[in-house]
């Protein structure tokens, strides 16, 4: 499946915050930065599965609420000395609406 789906208004997510979208592959966290960029990442920290959507968002990074792993929202990579990567998904803002990759509608994560 290709294309974009509208999942809500940009203002549904607070600046420097996140909301969750339920998908077949598990929860996906939609982050909104201070400068209104939007990123979609799996809502599972590669460390111990913490809900990244509940972390503190700073710059284009989020800090996992469970053990403070810091992840880059653009690449999904853990920063500093930590290792790990979380899957990222295409997302964009158009006319105040948030669009995510329609691939998230798929039943299972692509292999």
């Amino acid at each position: 499946m290709t294309g974009w789906i509208d999942i809500g208004a940009l203002d549904d997510i607070p600046r420097r915050g996140a909301r969750v979208v339920k998908a077949a592959r598990g929860c996906v966290a939609l982050f909104r930065t201070q400068d209104d960029r939007v990123f979609a990442l799996d809502d599972r920290c590669p460390h111990k599965g913490g809900p990244l959507s509940e972390g503190i968002v700073h710059g284009a990074r989020v800090t996992c609420p469970l053990h403070n792993l810091v992840l880059d929202l653009e690449t999904g990579l853990a920063e500093g000395l930590d290792e790990g990567r979380v899957a990222t998904h295409p997302a964009r803002v158009e006319g105040g609406r948030i669009l995510v990759d329609a691939g998230l509608l798929a039943k299972r994560p692509a292999a």
């Binding site: 789906i5 809500g8 969750v20 979208v21 339920k22 929860c27 509608l105």
Partner: peptide, 12 residues
């Protein structure tokens, strides 16, 4: 605001 923004499993 406390619930998911969207539920794509239902749409699917």
């Amino acid at each position: 605001r406390w619930a998911p923004l969207a539920d794509l499993t239902l749409e699917a």
